[in-house]
């Protein structure tokens, strides 16, 4: 597993970087600018939406790996869940920030306690709490178990945030991507950005997992040394 991760961590940054450059070209030069969403700032949408989707994916992986950890009690599932939660929290923070900047430009204010915005903020806070629970646990095994339960229970906020725009009346723009609301060039750029951010997510997740593996190795060697009285 370690070798595979090391190989991927050599290739993935390059792939992510090239894809990011292509995505920037598509967003800035290739796609036409849509009218009515704040002429220029609407281009933020090509990053805001993929980041939101990827954060939902990251938290879904937390759910799956937390379940697998409780079932199998293998440390690798806890490591993947924790790493995915961290990347998800970073992505959700970016979603909140870019959304807020777009709102200031389009609506005239930075924030409103609208269902979509509030549920996304709650989602972010839940996973920040998950990371705190996981970090501050004194006993490694107990912390992992508690975090796994938290990771499963906290997942309710993902569909709540994702479906907020269909369940309640919100100010947030309605979903247009799968309802034919985008020109073909825009749809292509959007899907390319989704693939690009997926590559970035995999790269960050891989890097975070390898960090956690080094931490585990350090803990084991420290324990060996303390047993030996070194």
């Amino acid at each position: 597993m370690k070798e595979r991760i090391a190989q991927r961590s050599n290739i993935l940054p390059g792939i992510s970087f090239v894809m990011m450059m292509v995505a920037l070209y598509l967003v800035f030069i290739y796609v036409p600018t849509a009218q009515g969403m704040g002429i220029m700032v609407q281009k933020v949408f090509y990053f805001h939406v993929p980041l939101a989707w990827l954060s939902y994916l990251a938290f879904t992986i937390v759910l799956v790996c937390s379940g697998l950890y409780l079932w199998r009690r293998e440390a690798k599932w806890d490591i993947i869940a924790r790493s995915s939660a961290e990347v998800g929290v970073v992505f959700t923070a970016l979603v909140l920030i870019t959304g807020s900047i777009w709102a200031k430009s389009a609506w005239g204010y930075w924030w409103t306690w609208d269902a979509r915005l509030t549920s996304t903020l709650v989602l972010w806070l839940i996973y920040v709490a998950y990371l705190m629970v996981r970090s501050f646990a004194v006993e490694e095994d107990r912390g992992a178990r508690f975090a796994a339960v938290f990771g499963i229970a906290g997942f309710f906020s993902v569909p709540l945030s994702a479906l907020a725009i269909t369940l309640w009346r919100t100010q947030h723009p309605p979903p247009v991507i799968f309802e034919g609301g985008l020109a073909p060039e825009m749809l292509f750029a959007m899907l390319f950005c989704v693939v690009t951010f997926t590559a970035l997510y995999i790269q960050l997740l891989t890097q975070r997992i390898s960090l956690r593996q080094i931490e585990t190795e350090i803990d084991q060697i420290s324990q060996n040394l303390s047993y030996q009285g070194g």
Binding site: G38, M40, V41, I97, W102, L204, R208
Partner: peptide, 26 residues
């Protein structure tokens, strides 16, 4: 270039945060 300031602020923040996170990891 309507709202260009907000547009550049959003992009700068995205890259700054992602770059910062990657630097922290490295």
């Amino acid at each position: 270039m309507e709202n260009a300031g907000y547009f550049f602020a959003a992009f700068a923040l995205i890259w700054a945060l992602l770059f910062g996170y990657v630097l922290i990891l490295i």
